[in-house]
Amino acid sequence: MQLHDTELFKRIQTHDEEALELLYDRYEKLLFSFCYRMTNNSFLAEEIVQDVFTKLWTKQRNFDETKGKFSSWLLTVTRNAALDKLRKKSVKTYELDERDALHEDPSSVETQVEWKEENEQLQTAMKTLSEEQRGIIELFYFKGMSQTSIAETCGIPLGTVKGRVRLALKHLRTELSSIKERGMQHEQ
């Protein structure tokens, strides 16, 4: 029987090496891929994954079960670690590139993909967004840019950034929900 993430997390906090390895195996690829998506750099991505597991091991981060799913929490911790790393390494300013905003090479989404379905649904939802909206999500979420940088990169007034980010995310969420719903109906 598979142990719950939270159970593994608790055991990791008591320095249980077996639990560490189990949780690592469970999330290695997702976290690495996410970090790679954010940094486009496999060396940095590895460093970030290492930072994340170090934080779990040394109890610098605490998961509160009442506040949602462990996987969401872990991904938030990972994103913050990635943003931190990007800042420290002062990786050169990101240039908005359509390839980044919409990864759609289907050849790399093949076998044994744990989050294949979510990935496909997201890609489909992303396509319904305008180019500008995809760009905004890219800069805000995956690059973690400040509002000022987003305004400068996109050439839009600073005061409108917050509204646009929210709108783009809401649009994406609505599309994603309807795609998921359709998928469910399909299965039935």
Binding site: K29, F32, T78
Partner: peptide
């Protein structure tokens, strides 16, 4: 859901060993 927009990328060779030993 956005992290799942990342396409699966295979981690570099030996990453698991390096990370786990550093963490421990």
């Amino acid at each position: 859901d956005l992290p799942y927009a990342a396409e699966p990328v295979n981690p570099p060779e030996g990453m698991k060993g390096r990370i786990l030993s550093t963490v421990k």
